[in-house]
Amino acid sequence: MNIFRLAGDISHLLAIFILLIKIWRSRSCAGISGKSQVLFGMVFLTRYLDLFTSFISVYNTVMKVIFILATLVTIYLVFFKFRATYDSNNDTFRAELLVIPIAGLAVLVNHEFSLFEILWTFSIYLESVSIMPQLYMISKTGEAETITSHYLFALGLYRGLYIVNWVWRYYTEQFYDWIAIVAGVVQTLLYCDFFYLYITKVIKGKEMSLPA
């Protein structure tokens, strides 16, 4: 554990709770892509299967359980409790076009051809693009509430901090993992446009609106 990794985890945790608090307080999931949340649910469930097979640390176990539960609660709020506020007309990204090719890629490009390893690889690849339905929704409606943009910023920052952590680990432990690094870079690059708008607009107190 180094400071970049810890900051990344905190940023990730913060993102998930910002989203939950936004939905709970406003009693609405307007502007939130249910599809992205389902993809994140799949990411956590396929990656954290090792909860049942190996114990790493209390920190590790607690964080994994929080990520899974918080995401399942978010999915429940979007599709059940506050379903009336879910903007499904604008959540039209074809998520299956991500999941199917990524499942194929995970079977072809992995560290070891075993069930857990392939599912772990699938979750790493899937996480890198899981935000696409959300970004697509925002570009379609042309706007995002300020709190939604805080959520996206914290979520984008998390993987960026993990990249710094991997650079650090490469120099201190001679450790690196190409699958995680390539997927992490792709994931962070997807947020670049958003980061630019966030810094130029939201920080200056303006509503976020995207050019058509």
Binding site: D9, K64, E112, D177, A180
Partner: peptide
């Protein structure tokens, strides 16, 4: 196994 070192990460 390459990934054992990565297992602590989330």
């Amino acid at each position: 196994r390459i990934r054992t070192q990565l297992k602590d990460e989330l």
